[in-house]
Nucleic acid binder design. Structure first.
Lengths: 106, 106
DNA sequence: TATTTTGTTCGCAAAATTACGAACAATTTC
DNA sequence: GAAATTGTTCGTAATTTTGCGAACAAAATA
């Protein structure tokens, strides 16, 4: 019934990615994973100052946002960046902040 | 007492910006403001499908995150992007997603 | 001075987030 | 088969977020 504009799909997608990145632990996880092919839960946990149950929860949120993916490789679970969505996020943020200016340093 | 690494200032700053951007209404507000010099509360409210009290709250959060600033110009209040922090955010996100590749289209 | 306009703040409610330890499941190793 | 390793899920608690209407404050206007 509202006459007001609704949010666009892009706005919602960008908000979803942003929200997933809205916690330092999740930023740290993403940066950690972005540096390597993949990594097991334990290595990620080691890097973070929080309990494993909490790490597991953060990983779940990142997975649900589509930024990472996990794969069971007994006895471990390997996590890695979801490259496709990572590229999408990168593009959405770039667009959001204004296109890449590639400014010269001088 | 923890042996675990703590989060870096950059990680926390990026998380703070991300969190502020973690809601479609706030994305919409930022995009709206990014397109113009400044804008009063009313114009922003008109664009959004939510009550003014809620809009005011979202603006407050964006202000606290440093992404926008408000100035009273009786009888209106003008909001605008905080250019300095906007540039900082842009840089942090760019760094996060990997430096600008400026890929050729072909 | 009374009224209107413009936004903010208050008080409340519902839902989501963050965090942890304990319990659990699956697999591997002893 | 028993024990150890690796993560997830459960249950709980504290805090934050989201949203709204009503009340409020400040300035402009009638």
């Amino acid at each position: 019934m509202s006459e007001k504009k609704d949010y666009t799909t892009k706005q919602e997608q960008l908000a979803r990615f942003s929200k997933a990145m809205g916690h330092p632990a999740r930023i740290a996880i993403l940066q950690f994973l972005a540096k390597r092919e993949d990594c097991c839960f334990g290595c990620i946990h080691e890097e973070l100052p929080i309990a494993k149950a909490t790490v597991s929860q953060h990983l779940k949120e990142l997975k649900e946002a589509g930024l990472i993916q996990g794969e069971v490789e007994p006895p471990k679970v390997k996590y890695c960046i979801n490259r496709e969505n990572w590229a999408l996020a990168k593009e959405l943020f770039r667009e959001f902040f204004g296109d890449c200016t590639c400014k010269k340093e001088h």
